[in-house]
Design a protein around this nucleic acid. Structure first.
Lengths: 187, 187
DNA sequence: ATTATTTTAACGAACGTTCAGTAAAATGCC
DNA sequence: GGCATTTTACTGAACGTTCGTTAAAATAAT
């Protein structure tokens, strides 16, 4: 094989935090390539265009989220308390670590009224997010009540991510996570 | 030819729905001017630059929101039930009517990690949003409990606006509004 | 030599912004 | 009231810069 400076996976990994904090439109191919240490034209070796890159970024985030969330939820060895704890750590990693909040929510609000390209992926992500919470809530609630609560929890969390960023204060997301924990454990 | 074609107030009014649905970065001066029926160069007669235009747009939305919200809350003639109803209509008008959701949330997520220019205005808007809800909640709750609930309601509503746009379904915002009503009326 | 990886150089289009110019309206002067 | 001047409202063309994208050349591994 020829000398590999970087790989597609590496590019995706390095590009995610930038797109999350700066947004899709505000992240130029020049800026993204600089962060990867390659020429911007080299992006077109991996991706056919910018839209394609964003699509792959969202798919990567979604599959990472899904894999980890359902690994926790469907575990046979973890207690409900442990599952809640692990889920909180996962959400922290995705939504809090460094700046930028939730890349799915950010991209949704930025693009959904311009270009439906990413809509299905984003819908699918939130469907899984809600479904995951619903599964945990079903331990102590009925299926219908669990769904309604799961939707409320996702709204609470996403609103918390918004306020967290506006006020540079993690308490809003923390409070939403506490309320989610209370609902799941039925305290 | 050039009589008075438009005014600063008219420009602000026409520009708001576009900025709300397409975002700040995705709305070019050309596009905005076209929607106002004037040349883009004429924008610079009213505003010193694009940033200045956005700042005035946010200030306009904020003052419109504040005037109407606190007129309802501080009324001596309206019952609590009526206040809740009127508030719901106001939030509907601001967040639901046409596409785009909440311009304050959209602008926050789009710009807050790039440019702190709009941060103070957005912070101030959400401070007033929370304060307004807190006032209504204080009828049946303690001051501290009312604040915590008000923050939760704003998070719920903003998350609901997000899901409403992602799934083209008003139920998410509707549910958040119902929960807000329940909390205020202490049902 | 061939294939895979990466760079250099350039493209047209769109961006925000500036500026000289112009027509209508408002104002000042008689 | 009529005329000259200034101010207000607006246009159209152009500016330099950045955008996403492409083609071709260069480099490195098999």
């Amino acid at each position: 094989m020829p000398k590999i400076k970087t790989s597609k996976e590496e590019v995706l990994k390095k590009v995610i935090p930038i797109l999350r904090s700066r947004g899709v439109q505000n992240s130029s191919m020049s800026e993204l390539s600089k962060a990867c240490g390659i020429q911007k034209s080299h992006f077109y070796y991996y991706f056919s265009n910018k839209e394609d890159l964003i699509r792959e970024v969202l798919a990567t985030v979604h599959s990472y989220f899904n894999y980890n969330l359902f690994k926790i939820i469907e575990s046979n060895t973890l207690s409900l308390n442990e599952k809640v704890l692990k889920m909180k750590l996962l959400l922290d990693k995705l939504f809090r670590a460094s700046d930028g909040g939730c890349i799915m929510a950010n991209t949704a609000l930025e693009t959904i009224h311009l270009d439906p390209t990413y809509k299905k992926e984003i819908q699918s992500f939130f469907k899984d997010f809600i479904l995951g919470l619903q599964r945990l809530l079903e331990v102590h609630h009925s299926t219908e009540k669990a769904l309604l609560l799961a939707e409320q929890m996702v709204q609470d969390i996403e609103g918390g991510i918004l306020l967290m960023q506006i006020y540079d204060d993690p308490k809003y997301l923390n409070n939403a996570m506490k309320r989610t924990e209370t609902a799941i454990l039925n305290l």
